[in-house]
Each structure stands twice: as C-alpha cells, then as structure tokens.
Design a protein around this nucleic acid. Structure first.
Lengths: 357, 357
DNA sequence: TTGAAAGCGCTAACAG
DNA sequence: CTGTTAGCGCTTTCAA
C-alpha cells in the first residue's frame, strides 16, 4: 500500500505538500501541484481514510439505524428508497453509509463513541426506544426520518405529511359519496398513526360531520385487522362503506378479509392504503393509496445531517421538514353504494375463492 | 472524549495494560483487570475504532455493494433479508457494514484502497461490471451472493439452487398433468436465468419429452413479458398450459396479462414465480413460487468473508456454497385443463376488470 | 509557497 | 505480569 510518505519521496516534496494537493489547498504552486498529481497517479495512491479520520477527529461516515421491529415492512420500497436517497447524498460528499439494525449485538450509541460515525440518520424508530434517550444525550448529531413524539425534545427530522394525506384520502371518499368511513390503523403511540387519526378527525370536522370514533380500529402494526372486530363493525345497523388504512399491507389484508366474507371492493366497500408500496400497484384491484416520496425523504435527511456537522444548524432550533403526500387513486375506491342496495355478508354472490393448501 | 491515556492515568497503569484489558488479553493480573475495568466503566471509555484500525492496519468494516440497476427489485424482501443476514453476523464480530450502491459517486474499488473496508460482499452484480475485474485484481477479499459466470475466475460465492428450483417447479407442473410449459425469463446473460433454463431443459429431458424451446420467452428483467409475444404463443395450435417465470414480479405481470385477455389462472393456465417476494403471498390468487432463504444467504456470505480475512480460506480454492430452494405451492397452479376444454382468448367469460384512471 | 515536527489514539515488539 | 518505545498515515501548528 502506497502512503503519503511514498508519494512525498517520489515527488521530492514534503508530506505536507502532498497533503495540500490531495485536499485541494490553494497555497500550492501550480507546477508543484501538477507534478505531485502525476506522481499520485503513477503510484495509484489513495489516502487512508482511517489515518485521515484519526488526524481530523472524525470518521467521515454516518450511521443509518433501522429499527429491526420494522423488519416485516422492510420489504417496502420505502426503506430501500430512503437508503438510496441517503446514500446518494453522502456518497457525493465522500462519506460512508454505515447501516445498522437495532437488534444487532452492538448498541448503536456505541458507534458514535467508538468514533465509527459522525452522526446518525434514524429510520422509523419507535418513540420509546431506550437507547434513543442516551443517543440524544450523547450529543451525537441525529436526523430522524420521522417526527419524534411531541415530547419537547428538539431533534431534527424529515417526515411526510400523514395528516394531510389522511385529509386528502377522506376528501376523496367524501366526494365519492361516502359518509361512514372507518379507519384501520396502528395504535396511536406510533406517531404516524396518531397523525393519521388527527387528519381523519379534521376531515370529518371540516365536512361538518360528527366524528365516528366507533369506526376507528386500532390494530397492532402489520398483524392485519382482526376479522371479528371488522365483522362486528359491518354487522352494525349503519356500517362503514369505506376504510382508510395506515399502511398498504394493512389495506390489502383488510380487502382480502372483506372479499373472503363476500364483499366486493370497491363495489360494496372502498379501501385506501398508505405508502404506495410495490404491493399496491400489483394487487388486484390496484390499491388506491397515499403516496410518499421516500427517496427524497432520505436525501433530505442526509443533507440536514451534513448541515448539522458543518455547524450550519441553528443551535436549539433543529431543522424539521415536512414533505407532501399525494393521493394515488387506483382501483379500490369507488362511489358509495346507496344504503338500500347494501349487501350483507351472507348474500355473497361470488363463491369464496379458495386458495390451495 | 476519554482516551486510553486518560484511563491509564486514572488507573495508574500503562496504556498497554489498558489495551490488554480491552482486548481480553490473558496476561493481566485479575486484580489489575478488575481495577482497570472499573475505571473504564466510570469514565465511560470506549476505544476509538479509527485509531485501532490504523494501528492494526484494518478497517474493521465490510463493504456491501448493491447493484443499482437492481433498484426496481430492491423492494424485494430478498435484498433486505440478505442485508439483515449479513448485518447479524458482522455485528456479532464488531464489524461494520458499509452499504454502497454501484452508481454512487465513488467507485466501490476505492473503498478498499482507502482502507475503509477490509472486504466486500457483492449483491446481484451483473457479470460484465467493469469495476468488478479491477476489484478482483486488487486482491480485496470478496464474496458474491450469486454465482459468477463460468469464466474461470475463482471467486467465493453463496447462491441458491435455481436449477434445482426450476426442476422442482416443472415436476410439480408435470404432476398436475401439464406437458406444454412455457418459460418466461430474463435473458440468459443473467446467471440465474441461464440456470433456470438449464433446469427447465433437464426437467423435460428427465421426463423423456422433447424440449419445447419455442415456449421459452426471453424478457428483459423486470419489464414484464411482451403482450404480443404471449398472445402469439397462446394463439398456436398447441399452446402452453403453464408458465414458469424467473421472478415473482414477472409472474404477476404475466398473470395480469393473461387475466386481461380472459384467461383464468390457474383454471386455464398455471403460473409459477421465483423468489417468494412479499408480493407473492398477497397477490390474488397467492402465487406458487420457488422460495429461497435470503437471510441465510446473507449470513453465510458474511461468514465466508470473515473466514477469508482470518486466513482460513484455501488459496486458489474459494468457498462456494449452494443453498437449496423450496417450491411453495399456493394458488396459481392447478391441474392441466384437458385440451378439448381449452378456452381461447376471445371467449372470455369474465369481463375485463377495468381499473380506474 | 513550502517544510519540520508534533500529535491524533491505539497496538506491537521488546524489555524488565 | 507490566511498562517503554515506536510506529500506523495522515493533518496541523509554526517557522522558514
């Protein structure tokens, strides 16, 4: 491995001069610079980031922490798009992206104290993660790809406008004539679920309608809606004619459940998902969903983090960015069926589509 | 930041003794060790991996290279499972996982020369990547999560048995009475497509049947099958009654295409995918597919890489591991419809399911 | 514009 | 068992 010393010797200059050249320092004579550059090229020299990092007191790499409990969802494009967005920005600054899952052997806070990373981007962390407090206390620069609970902790984040998305989704359903709309969502300790619920209520209020809180079903994330509770809801005298769901997988499970008991989607009941996962467009019928730009979210998070590291952040006033969501109307939403024509579960026309054992 | 010197002073020992303690060196008196450990705990000391790496001449981190051209597929669970498998093993050895996309600004070969990583795991690299040759020439330890072309380059890899998977898939279809089976696959310059085709042919040979090469459709990866070519195939006097596809997305697109022109799957035509993506189980009907254990593939790749770094690899004889595939029978394969009952595209019973604009 | 010397925090010989 | 002395390869004073 050729080192800076090798280059200095071969070029008959000091190490410092070589250092100046590789760091694009202005105070180098043009002839010297050219000469050194040629020697560098001949020797195929590349500076050791380890040595540079040690000397500069920084790692030149960022940690991306992914919450392992999200592993079921990791197959969502969201995660990969996020990563690609982050990678693109960091790579342009010659900074490494170190990916870490929360359940790995080493606690992620150590990455900072061991000087492996200069800062963190935290993806989809649960709000009550015990390491989180320690991390923030450690003073490590952090950006979250999700809002943190309204607990007063001033942290930087990039997030998408779930609340606005929910309002857009409900407006769409209202326009189609729906008035009794259910919400199938993760428990509100997940911040996005909380915001979704808030948007849901806001939309109802804006339309001057009473908020049907009985239609809100809190479902553990990614386990899918409880068949019994859905059945009970639909057995009511005035059941929902549409549902909004906190993620696409939830929506798809709900649709399959509805189909199994004989409802047609969107003929009898409309359903809206959230995220626009790859699943959404290939599901039959293709899913109407609230799309978010995860790639952009990732790249913005990286940019904010870099700004923090360059000291461009205003202390005590962390950068917080909200990206818009966009309702993508596909095939699972349709006009509300007039009350009289409503079918019940027992009158299913189509036989249960039996999947093979 | 507390350093080893701080600990040494506070504990009244030399730096080397502290070093011995943190590296679990045996030659330390139990009392000294205990004392030093206590001081370390009190001071909250953590060794700098940068300094350690520089001193040891290694980075203590591995590069995971993901081919960007695979970005469409990145939403497959395969990729995330692979990553998690790798991460789990590396993390247990206190080694970082540095993720890099091939189209990022810095060529990945530099990661090694800049001493940012000690080796590489390469995911789904195309066989003709120009950087690849340079990387292998550089002598950096590499493991591929895919077989490399039979070009004689002795590299380590972990792969899954696509050929065996294809044979299992075909056998399943043969058992259901199918004799005319199409193959919709990526061009055979992708190694897995090549192996899939080989398995397809082997299966036909084993059953003593002529290989229907006219039924093999090469389709650019992930663009989906060409409707015209499928239509032409099905318009033949003796069209295929089943298809095997080189990935699940391809299968799903084929199914949607078939449904659009009035075929029922699996009533009229059976379809088998490959990978067992998240898509597969939530598609309607759920997809019969060739499952692979991507998590295990990732962890094995990491283990092989670690072995190489510890010098446990036999020179010139790189470790190559083949993991089994498993046919997961779901709802898209069924008995072959007797020739007489075959429907043609024009007699579709069910109306085209129109998706909303 | 350039260079010498010191140091980043750790580990690796070699003594004691 | 423990400490001393050198580095690892780079950057950063401070002079020249």
């Amino acid at each position: 491995m050729t080192t800076i010393t090798d280059v200095a010797k071969a070029a008959n200059v000091s190490k410092k001069t070589v250092s100046r050249v590789i760091n694009d320092h202005p105070d180098v004579a043009e002839s010297t610079r050219r000469h050194v550059q040629q020697v560098i090229a001949e020797l195929g020299y590349q500076p050791s980031m380890l040595a540079r990092g040690l000397a500069q007191g920084k790692a030149n790499s960022m940690g991306v922490i992914i919450d392992q409990s999200a592993e079921e969802v990791f197959s969502y494009p969201l995660y990969s798009d996020n990563l690609r967005g982050i990678s693109r920005v960091l790579s342009a600054h010659n900074i490494d992206m170190l990916v870490h899952f929360t359940r790995d052997a080493v606690p992620y806070t150590d990455l900072y104290r061991q000087r492996r990373v200069d800062g963190f981007i935290l993806m989809s962390m649960p709000m009550n993660d015990p390491q989180l407090e320690a991390l923030i206390a450690s003073g490590a620069p952090c950006v979250f790809t999700q809002r943190i609970a309204d607990n007063g902790t001033p942290v930087a984040w990039v997030d998408v406008d779930f609340e606005g998305g929910a309002i857009a989704a409900l407006d769409h359903l209202f326009e189609l004539g729906h008035r009794r709309i259910g919400l199938v969502t993760s428990p509100p300790n997940k911040i996005y679920a909380y915001l979704l619920l808030r948007g849901y209520r806001t939309a109802y209020e804006r339309h001057g309608l009473a908020i049907p809180d009985a239609f809100v079903l809190h479902t553990p994330a990614y386990t899918g809606p409880d068949p019994d509770r859905i059945a009970a809801l639909l057995a009511q005298p005035d059941p929902p004619t549409a549902f909004a769901c906190s993620d696409d997988l939830m929506a798809i499970r709900l649709i399959q459940l509805l189909q199994r008991v004989g409802y047609d989607v969107p003929g009898d009941i409309s359903v809206i998902g959230s995220d626009d996962a790859l699943l959404a467009q290939f599901f039959t019928p293709p899913l109407t969903t609230i799309r978010q730009d995860a790639l952009r979210k990732g790249s913005m998070a990286a940019e904010i983090l870099l700004r923090q590291l360059h000291g461009e952040a205003i202390p005590g006033q962390p950068e917080q960015q909200l990206l818009p969501t966009h309702l993508t109307v596909r095939g699972t939403t349709g006009p509300a069926r007039p009350a009289g024509e409503r079918r019940t579960a027992n009158q299913s026309e189509r036989p249960l589509r039996q999947s093979r054992p």
